[in-house]
Simulated scan of single mutants.
Amino acid sequence: MRTVLLIGVGAGDPDYVTVQAVKALNRVDVFFVIEKGAEKDDLIELRRRILSDHVPGGGYRVVEARDPERERVGLDGVAYRATIEQWHEDRTDIYERLVGGLGDGEVGAFLVWGDPALYDGTMRILDRVTARGSVAFETEVIPGVSAISALTAGHRIPLNRIGEPIHITTGRRLGAALVDGALPEGFDNIVVMLDGDLTFTKLSEPDVTIYWGAYLGTADEILVAGPVLKVAGEIESVRAEARARKGWIMDTYLLRRG
C-alpha cells in the first residue's frame, strides 16, 4: 500500500519544523514539490533547505509539478465557487498522477506551508483523489506551526481573551460582513487570512486594533500593530513595497475590538 504524508513545516522559519516532522521526513521515498511560479522560488528553496538539514543521508527522490492557474473573478459567489471547483479538479488530476507514480509500499510526502489543517487545500485534493478510486493509498498528517501562531508570537500577544470567541475568516467574507465600516456585533477577535483587497482599510470603527504580519517566520518578516485607523495606511504602503520587491506576499492579521 502506498502512503502519503502531509508534513506541516511551519510558517517560514526552518526551525519551526517539529521533531515529529523530522521523523516523518526520514521515512519518505519521494517528495512532491508543487511549483507556484518563479516569483515564489524562495518557498521551494526553503523546502530544499529543510531536506538538506533534516534528511542529510539523502536517498529520496524529488518529483516536481506546476500548480495549475486559477481564474481570478470578482466577488460574485457563484462564479467564485465555480472557478475554485475547476481549479480543484485540475489539481486533482496532477495529484492523482503524482501519487500514482509511487511504487507499492513507498512513502510520498507533500511539505505543507504552515499547518496542513489550516487554510491549505492539500488534504481536500487528496480526498478527491481517493474518491476517484483509481489510486489506493493511506494518508497521514503531521501538524505544523501555523501562520496564526507565528503572528501572535511575533507580536507577543495571546490569541484568545478570557471568555471571548475567536473567528478565523478571509478578507472576502469579512468585507461582506462589515456593517457601515464596523465589525459585526460579537466578533471581537477576528483572524483574517487571504486578504488581497486589504479589507481592514474599509473599517471606520475607532476601537479596533490590528496586529498584522507578512512573511512570518522568515528573514523578511514584517510586523505592524496599532489602532487600525492610524496604521492602515502604513500597512498598505509597506505591503505594496514588499510585494513589489519580492513579487509575492503572504500576510495575515488579527483584528481586536476594545
Rank of each mutant, 00 (worst) to 15 (best):
G217L: 03
V224D: 05
T209H: 13
A232I: 00
K202V: 11
G213I: 03
T209M: 12
A225C: 07
I235P: 05
E236T: 05
D195F: 15
V224L: 06
K246G: 03
P206W: 10
T201R: 08
E241K: 00
F200M: 15
V228E: 06
G233P: 07
G233S: 01
E241R: 00
R243N: 07
V224S: 03
T199F: 13
A242Y: 08
R243S: 07
D220Q: 08
F200E: 10
I235Q: 08
A232L: 10
V224R: 01
M193P: 01
R243Q: 03
T218G: 03
D220G: 02
P206F: 08
L223R: 08
I222M: 07
W212R: 04
L194F: 14
I210Q: 02
A242L: 03
V238G: 04
K202S: 13
D195T: 12
F200P: 11
L229G: 11
V228K: 14
T201S: 14
A242S: 01
D207S: 14
V224N: 06
I210R: 00
E205Q: 15
K246C: 05
D220V: 08
G213F: 02
Y211I: 01
K246V: 08
E221L: 02
E236V: 07
D207R: 14
L194P: 14
D197Y: 13
I222G: 07
A240M: 06
A240P: 04
D207Y: 11
L203F: 09
Y211L: 08
G226V: 10
L229A: 09
V231R: 06
D195N: 10
A225Y: 02
A232E: 05
T218C: 06
L223F: 08
L223C: 02
P227A: 11
R239H: 09
V208L: 13
I235W: 10
L229C: 05
Y211H: 02
G233E: 03
